[in-house]
Design a protein around this nucleic acid. Structure first.
Length: 423
RNA sequence: GGAAAGAUGGCAGAGUGGUCGAAUGCGGCGGUCUUGAAAACCGUUGAGGAUCAAACCUCCGGGGGUUCGAAUCCCUCUCUUUCCGCCA
């Protein structure tokens, strides 16, 4: 959520920058400025009235002590009058406040100045690529056929137990999942990220604080009896550790990582994108999260991009990194780098990681602040996160790229975690 | 699931209707003393809003109510602890 001050201080800049996200903010910003003015006036009026009431209440106390009952009763009458007046103003104030929140909460984050113009993923800017796309002298199979051939993943069984998008990993398939999780977590550990094992369900306040609500309502599984949401990413519970927290400047950077299953309803998805492991309702992911001083957050974003790149390199997968254009950038993000790996039998690039700087957008809702020695005022921190990495598409690419006619080779770096060399 | 007790500032812990935004202790910060440190002593130390600044307003788990006035009384929700029941 943008701060009101951000908007009122520089309305034209907000409008211009949101255009890059293909968001027309003009009307909304104008309304916000108007309501803000009205709200301030109302608040002043209300505060003054309350001050008077407080004063009278104090006087009444003293009058009673002095046994001046008559005078006290007169004052009481006046206080009742004032109270009625302030009730009206207060209800008006609440209305304004609610209207304001509604307007502000639906404004996306401002894109970073370096975000390229564009409407869709076709306009994303390639940053760099690496690895080599394998060639086969036999007919390469897509991962869903490999999964069946070697009995690694049973999609049909998942359909039976739960429904589409809930695959069952079996035998070496399950072991491969476990090895990948361990590998990712141990990389995080080496890079100084504290490992977190968070709850897989969150309450409404948490879902709001990281911006899933109200924007992505309907995309999360909702346990209505207790009003809990199944997490769509570990970002939600891990970032919420720092909801309503005031850090000290010297605590930065806070680095956390965590493995969790992720649950997404993916309402509206269809077609070839959902084939096999490409899009699931439940999948595993290791997430990295950092909280940083605003002055250093873009430096940190670069570090996180390098970190993810390094993991993909270790797995020997062909990859490319793209900087998302304005139109492809998420609601909450200021700057995002996506990682895609090439899945050699599908002949398709698959998105496996998204590394973003949210600047103060999440922190504002989280009320995550820090105090610094140069300023008395508490400032909002910056939050960043990235997948490092999401498993299913990595698994798809590994199976497809490492296949031979006799089996599937395990990448060297995973062998210590899995205990065998081929499938 | 049933019963009881409780939720107060970074922590501990007073406060049961009237200068209480809140005693006290610990911790933090600044200072005196010291070569330095410790101890001792002095001062300072919650968050948000409004303002050039102040006066001022809001916040004692969340929400609602009673009252001229609520941390204090009532209702409700959430959470914690203990006991019982159930159970990996």
């Amino acid at each position: 959520m943008l701060t009101i001050r951000q908007i009122t201080n520089n309305p034209q800049e907000i409008i211009d920058r949101l255009k890059i996200k293909n968001f027309d903010a003009k009307e909304r910003v104008t309304q916000i400025i108007e309501i803000d003015k009205e709200k301030r006036n109302t608040q002043k009026e209300l505060d003054d009235l309350k001050a008077e009431q407080n004063k009278i209440a104090r006087e009444i106390g003293l009058l009673f002590k002095d046994k001046k009952i008559e005078e006290a009763n007169e004052a009481k009458a006046k206080a009742i009058e004032l109270k009625a007046a302030s009730k009206n103003i207060e209800s008006n104030f609440i209305k304004l406040d609610e209207a304001m929140f509604k307007l502000v909460v639906e404004l996306p984050n401002l894109p970073h100045p370096t975000v390229p113009l564009g409407k869709s993923d076709a306009d994303n800017e390639k940053v760099r690529e690496g690895g080599e796309i394998p060639t086969f002298d036999f007919t390469a199979l897509p991962h869903w056929e490999l999964a069946e051939k070697y009995d690694l993943i049973d999609f049909k069984l998942g359909n039976k137990i739960t429904g589409a998008g809930f695959p069952v990993y079996k035998g070496k398939g399950a072991k491969l999942q476990r090895a990948l999780i361990n590998f990712f977590l141990s990389e995080g550990d080496k890079a100084g990220y504290q490992e977190i094992m968070p709850p897989l369900m969150v309450n409404e306040a948490s879902a709001y604080a990281t911006g899933q609500l109200p924007d992505k309502d309907g995309q999360m599984y909702h346990a209505t009896v207790d009003n809990f949401y199944l997490i769509p990413t570990a970002e939600v519970p891990i970032t919420n550790i720092y909801r309503d927290v005031i850090l000290d400047e010297k605590d930065f950077p806070v680095k956390m990582t965590g493995y969790t299953p992720c649950f997404r309803r993916e309402a509206g998805s269809y077609g070839k994108d959902v084939k096999g492991l490409n899009r699931l309702h439940q999948f595993d992911k290791v997430e990295i999260v950092q909280l940083q001083n605003p002055a250093k957050s873009y430096e940190t974003l670069d570090q996180m991009v390098n970190y993810v790149e390094n993991i993909i390199k270790k797995l020997g997968l062909p990859y490319r990194i793209v900087k998302l254009c304005g139109g492809d950038l998420s609601f909450t993000s200021a700057l995002t780098f996506d990682f895609e790996v090439y899945s050699a039998a599908q002949e398709q690039w698959l998105e496996v990681s998204s590394v973003s700087n949210f600047e103060a957008f999440q922190a504002n809702r989280l009320k995550l602040r820090f105090k610094s020695k140069d300023s008395k005022k508490k400032q909002l921190a910056h939050t960043l996160n990235g997948s490092a990495l999401a498993l299913p598409r990595i698994l798809a690419a590994l199976l497809e790229n490492y296949q031979t006619e006799d089996g599937i080779k395990i990448p060297d770096v995973l062998v210590p975690f899995i205990g065998f060399e081929t499938i």
